[in-house]
Computed example of a mutant assay.
Amino acid sequence: MTDQFDRWVEDTDRAIASALEAQSRAGAVLGAVSGELLEPLHDISSGGKRVRALLLLAAHDAFGGTQDRSATSVAAALELFQTAALVHDDVLDGSDTRRGRPSTHRRVESLHREQGWHGDSAEYGEAGAVLGGDLALMCCQRALSDAVLDRPRAVAQTVSRLFLDMADIVTLGQYADMRAAAAPIAGLGDQEQEIRSVMRAKTASYTAEFPLGLGAALAGADPEGVDAMRRAGLSLGHAFQLRDDLLGLTGSSAATGKPTGDDVREGKRTLVMWRAWRGTDDQGRIVIGDALGVRNASDQAVARVLDVVHSTDAIAWSEEEIARAADEARRSLSEQQLTPRGLAALESLITRAVDRVA
């Protein structure tokens, strides 16, 4: 199975590179200036585990799909959409690094400072990264357009609609995430449903729900089959986000690509933190409140938050939630008429996605 995944990743990487090269050719009219935004995008797009692409291609294979070129192009579009989301997220969260490198807005900020240009370097970096994320979205559309050019009209319409629905849901989910983080910390214990809604919209949708649905649609699955894959993806996406949340609290920077404690300083409202808040006492809530969402919180303050989390059942409870959601995803897949190879690939990807460790 690993060899198949490696081939799919290589094919996706080539499709991403092709879309980025086309974008670079279009931007060549500006000369070297275009590279100041495009080079960071190339760097970010070259990293990652390609989870979304692999799920899409495995779903396409599971439904007996033969449109490998089209499926790979849509997989590339998904990964480029992820690039855009990461660039914009880093601006919104004020993150300094991404995948072990300076985030895009920090790179553009450094350029401004080194050149001695007029104005505020930080503001310039953020503005440049917003445009960089927009460029990644445009590149995503390039790849998507290539994918549906030679597909039957009905399939092309379904794929385009699914992709647009996904983009809308994720963008609104990002706002919902900001909104949740802006709420008074005292209300954290009442935010369970709000947090679950954000997880569904911001992460589950484009991590698993729509990749699986898009793969099925490209293979010619009927609407019921597409919907079934989306339901499986929602369960898997829930498990994936919970694992991310645990790693964001307890994982190493080498594993996450971001400084340890960033999720605490950014004020992320997660089910792990919600469970810890509900399970601790007043003193523990004071400790959490002193660091959650405090940008300049010290390492010691963040460490005290982690001590509070570990003193409750939040981590064990989250692991149980992950296992339950992963089992739901597997059960949903087992109820479909899928090719043996495709089903095996999907089950392997579920294990890979939820069993990640620091």
Rank of each mutant, 00 (worst) to 15 (best):
T270D: 05
R269Q: 04
G257K: 10
G257Y: 11
S252M: 09
G267D: 09
Q283R: 14
K268G: 06
A276W: 04
L271E: 07
T250N: 07
D263Q: 11
L271V: 01
T270S: 15
A254L: 10
R278P: 00
V264S: 06
R278M: 13
D282L: 08
A255S: 15
R269Y: 03
G261I: 13
G251R: 06
R265Q: 12
D281N: 14
R278L: 14
T260G: 15
M273D: 00
G261L: 04
A255H: 02
P259T: 10
R278N: 14
G251H: 07
V272D: 07
T256I: 09
W277P: 03
D263I: 07
T270K: 06
T250C: 07
R269I: 07
R275M: 06
D263R: 06
V264M: 14
W274H: 15
R265V: 10
R269A: 14
D263S: 11
V272I: 09
R269C: 11
L271P: 05
G261H: 08
A276Y: 04
W274V: 14
G267I: 08
V272G: 01
K268M: 12
A254V: 13
V264Y: 05
A255R: 08
E266W: 06
S253G: 08
S252R: 02
T260E: 13
R265K: 13
W274F: 13
G267S: 03
D262A: 12
R269L: 12
V264Q: 04
T250F: 15
W277F: 14
T270P: 05
A276L: 05
K258F: 02
D282I: 02
T280V: 02
P259W: 02
V272P: 02
G261P: 11
D281M: 05
P259D: 12
E266Y: 12
A276F: 02
W277V: 02
A254F: 01
T250I: 10
T260C: 03
T260Q: 14
T250H: 14
T270I: 07
G257P: 09
G279E: 06
V264L: 11
K258A: 06
D262F: 03
D281R: 05
T250Q: 13
D282R: 13
W277A: 11
M273V: 15
D262G: 08
T260F: 01
S252E: 12
D263P: 08
M273P: 03
V272H: 01
D282G: 00
K258T: 04
R275I: 02
Q283Y: 01
D263Y: 06
G267A: 10
R278C: 15
V264A: 03
T256M: 04
A255V: 07
T256C: 11
A255W: 08
R275A: 14
T280I: 01
S252C: 07
R265L: 08
T256E: 12
K258V: 04
A276V: 09
E266D: 12
W274S: 01
W277E: 00
E266V: 02
K268N: 09
M273F: 10
K268Y: 09
W277Y: 13
R278W: 00
G257Q: 13
W274K: 00
R265Y: 05
W277I: 00
A276C: 12
G279V: 08
T280S: 15
T256R: 05
D282N: 03
S253C: 02
D263G: 12
V272Y: 02
K268R: 12
G257E: 13
R275Y: 01
S253K: 00
S252F: 00
S252L: 05
P259L: 13
R265T: 11
Q283G: 00
T260W: 06
T270N: 10
A255F: 04
D282A: 15
K268C: 04
